[in-house]
Write a protein that binds this DNA or RNA. Structure first.
Lengths: 210, 210
DNA sequence: CCGGACAAGGGGATTTTTCCCCCTTTTGAC
DNA sequence: GTCAAAAGGGGGAAAAATCCCCTTGTCCGG
């Protein structure tokens, strides 16, 4: 028995070619396509069964991917959804995952990865790739540095230099012991183990511009 | 007597507004505008005098900024040229400077800086700003790291981590004393004073991708 | 064959960094 | 007013990084 797929995407050309592609994979079959979230919701509210996997586009008129996902979270919390999108917006990815989306793919992927994602969601219930882990790690880091105090941020930028901590202390008009406190506090908040770790974090987050 | 200016730029709208702007500056006067380098070359080969300052766009059809600059280096080595461009390509800037270009400005600058540049080139013969010094320092650094040995490069990438040098030595199957040599050698070649300096250099040069 | 460049390794020393304790004062929220 | 967090400061010790000066072997061009 083939796994059923429903495609929700307003881009007709893409939706159609995607359907052909999916049907060419063994074990999957597109049973419906909709132009937007509203059409899907009406279909489901009419008492129809959801598909095994829902392929959801983000950018759609009427009811976009996010709203559709929110509705599904309320009304079909177990619906497996694989999001297909053109842009890698870290914030968006995070929100979709929170709403229970099982996978997130950029539209320019290789068919092989796409097939792999379908199989992974079918078998394991979710699919994770670089796009997602990048978004998550960025989110993680963002959370981290948002809870830094002003003085810690200031110290962090000073640490991105060839000055010794003693010299940094002079620059900041502080005792070396105080900057040592900031250092230790940052090590623990940012989960780094050395000054090099601090520097790489600061550069990664754009706190220090190189 | 006004200093004469010739504009070479295929973007008509830009060339025209630039002409108006230049004419509004006291002491400067646009005497000609050309759509590409070829037109300029024909004009000069016809026996016409070159302007005091030539404003040259990089991206042009037929004969672009680089080719035009090369022709000028051969045939009018004393022609003062101020390059105007949309993109900051360090390589390009370096090449243009080598070809004898006296100044290099991005097209999104403030009129004030532009006027300042014209005056500087008129008086001192050249104009230097951040765009150029950035490109030069990049060139400097590039020269530096091109003379690093393979092993030094390898060590450099390992240094961009939270590993201690002892651990780096293990990774590289070397004695800690040997990596110490690489470290010292890099400090002197790259003119840095600490591991943080190494890391920042590597990131700046794209040797280590963050 | 000799000198120079380079990779690899080392001795011994100082400075910095890192770590784990401790403390006071100020400040803002409740 | 109280309580917690932030800012500022310390002692002492281990580990890491930095510095200067040295040897050995190899390989390559003159």
């Amino acid at each position: 028995m083939n796994k059923t797929i429903i495609i929700v995407d307003d881009h007709k050309l893409f939706a159609q070619s995607l359907q052909i592609l999916v049907n060419s994979f063994s074990g999957f079959e597109v049973v419906k396509t909709f132009k937007n979230g509203e059409e899907l919701v009406k279909y489901l509210e009419a008492g129809n069964e959801g598909p095994d996997i829902l392929l959801l586009d983000m950018r759609m008129p009427v009811m976009d991917g996010m709203s559709t996902m929110a509705w599904l979270k309320e009304n079909r919390p177990d619906q497996k959804v694989l999001t297909l999108t053109v842009d890698q917006e870290d914030e968006t990815i995070i929100k979709m995952l929170r709403l229970g989306c099982r996978g997130y793919l950029l539209k320019d992927i290789e068919p092989e990865e796409f097939e792999h994602a379908l199989n992974a969601i079918d078998r394991n219930g979710y699919y994770s790739n670089k796009t997602i882990s990048d978004a998550l790690s960025h989110e993680e880091r963002k959370k981290k540095y948002e809870e830094l105090t002003d003085r810690e941020m200031e110290f962090l930028t000073h640490a991105c230099s060839e000055l010794t901590y003693k010299q940094v202390a002079e620059e900041m008009h502080l005792s070396p012991k105080t900057v040592d406190n900031y250092r230790e506090s940052l090590f623990s908040k940012l989960q780094v183990k050395s000054r090099v770790g601090l520097v790489m974090f600061a550069i990664k987050e754009g706190i220090f511009k190189i």
